[in-house]
Amino acid sequence: MIDYHTHHVRCGHASGELEEYVQKGIEIGLTQLGLSDHMPLLHVNPETYLPGMAMPMDELPRYVEEAFRLQEKYKDRIDIRVGLEGDYIEGWESEIRRIVEAYPWDYVIGSVHFLGEWDITDYRQTDGWKDRDAYEVYVQYYDAVQKAARTGLYDYIGHIDVIKRFGFKPERSTEHLERQALEAVKAAGLAIELNASGLRMPVNEMFPSRRMLEAALELGIPVTIGSDAHQPERLAQYLDQAVEILRSVGFNELATFRRRKRSMMPIGF
């Protein structure tokens, strides 16, 4: 029983200290708990941008220090993996690389939240869709996912179709865009995650869709799972349903990570 995608008070839009997540993980019987807070903002001014987007840069070393301290403190009760959700921002690859290479992460999630300065996952920025062609936004988004996969910075791609989060979908099919993104993931030797948090979003569907999961299985892409919890009480939320979906599609293993090395474990929920 694992949960590899969690956020904490440092990121500015979540609640709960790291240790509260660890204690909750022990309480609910997690085998592995991944701590994976957001990388600090790089390409926008955090003092003038919308508040609460990510942890301040000076908090990053404190996050890492505390996470590894908790890993040692609770090693006999829960297996903690220390990770980072490393937002991919086109044109900022060198700056991202410096952060990724500065610490001994167990894993780094490659997620696309930003198209330029527009965060397509922020409920406060949904007006950004108003004057844009939805299909062209999807083209830009999946192009960014492909570029993220090719950087070599990440261990798996997070919520790969999160562009659908608020229910904005083009009339034209985007299946070929999804396929191109998955093929880039496969070529880079990465995994993807089944992110259960979509069930509490307007789209009311996990990330990715069953269609993308079936394509991932066909391509031989490994999958891990995460709740994307932003409160301790949401740790492992909907992951029982995520496992049911994975099994019904045909997956029987989950990807896990230690020191940037992937290994597979049987689905055991």
Rank of each mutant, 00 (worst) to 15 (best):
M1L: 13
H5Q: 12
G16P: 10
L18H: 04
E19Q: 09
E20F: 13
V22I: 15
E27D: 15
E27C: 14
G29N: 11
G29T: 11
L30R: 09
L30E: 10
T31S: 15
L33Q: 15
L33K: 13
L35E: 06
S36A: 15
H43P: 09
V44I: 12
E47S: 12
E47H: 07
Y49A: 15
M53N: 08
M55D: 00
M57Q: 09
E59P: 00
P61S: 05
R62A: 13
V64Y: 01
E66N: 11
E66Y: 08
A67L: 09
L70N: 10
Q71S: 14
E72H: 06
K73D: 03
K73C: 04
R77M: 13
D79R: 10
D79P: 08
I80M: 10
R81D: 08
I89G: 02
E90P: 01
W92E: 09
R97L: 05
R98M: 05
A102Y: 02
A102G: 01
P104G: 12
Y107F: 15
Y107K: 07
V108L: 06
H113Y: 00
H113R: 06
G116A: 05
W118A: 07
D119Y: 00
I120A: 03
T121D: 05
D122W: 05
Y123N: 09
Y123R: 11
R124M: 06
Q125L: 14
T126A: 04
W129A: 13
D133T: 14
A134Y: 02
E136M: 07
V137L: 01
Y138S: 09
Y142C: 07
Q146A: 11
K147W: 05
K147Y: 04
A148L: 04
R150H: 02
G152S: 08
L153E: 02
Y154F: 15
D161Q: 03
V162F: 08
K169Y: 09
K169H: 10
K169R: 04
E171Y: 01
S173E: 01
T174H: 00
E175Q: 05
L177H: 00
R179Y: 01
A181R: 01
E183V: 04
E183G: 03
K186C: 09
G189H: 05
L194R: 07
L194Q: 04
S197I: 13
L199F: 02
M201R: 03
N204Y: 00
E205Q: 08
M206T: 11
R210Y: 03
R211D: 10
A215F: 14
A216G: 07
L217G: 02
E218K: 01
L219D: 07
L219N: 06
G220E: 03
S227M: 12
A229M: 05
H230G: 07
P232D: 11
R234H: 14
L235R: 03
L235Q: 06
Q237N: 09
Y238W: 15
Y238H: 15
I245N: 00
V249I: 12
G250D: 09
E253Y: 12
A255H: 11
M264P: 10
M265T: 14
P266A: 14
I267A: 14
F269G: 12
